[in-house]
């Protein structure tokens, strides 16, 4: 496992919740949106275990919409608990990202100033 995917693993739930908060999406759409924002390393299949876990924890609900000719798509939307969880994750991320940036990007700054 690459370092990036290890780091991502912890925060991927938050990313998926954030995409679903903006609009209801189905699986393929979700993976495309994650790649569009630059998370190209998320292998597409990884979203399905995440979606199942979020459903099991009642943070999102999925509805399978059948269609006569086209594909069957399961559309996901956030529950109230999901909105709360997203808020908590965003807050935690803010609190973590400032000190981590300060720590990890320090070396970069001093290199640049030389």
């Amino acid at each position: 496992m690459t370092i990036r995917s290890q780091l991502l693993k912890g925060i991927l739930d938050g990313c998926v919740l954030a995409v679903i908060e903006k609009e209801t999406v189905y699986g393929y759409e979700l993976s495309r949106k994650l790649q569009e924002v630059g998370l190209a390393d998320v292998s597409e299949g990884t979203i399905y275990p995440v979606l199942l876990r979020l459903q099991k924890n009642k943070l999102i609900t999925g509805k399978m919409i059948p269609s006569e000719s086209g594909p069957n798509r399961k559309y996901y939307s956030l529950t109230e608990a999901g909105k709360d969880a997203l808020n908590i994750i965003s807050e935690e991320w803010n609190q973590l990202s400032v000190p981590i940036n300060a720590l990890l990007l320090k070396g970069e700054d001093s290199n640049e100033s030389k």
């Binding site: 699986g27 393929y28 993976s31 292998s43 597409e44 299949g45 399905y48 594909p71 069957n72 798509r73």
Partner: peptide, 21 residues
């Protein structure tokens, strides 16, 4: 069913099951 639909859509874009899963 979701995975199958994903694979069919990905196949149109030239991806294989290995690329996706």
């Amino acid at each position: 069913m979701e995975m199958l639909e994903h694979l069919i859509e990905g196949q149109h874009d030239g991806k294989t099951a290995r690329d996706i899963f």
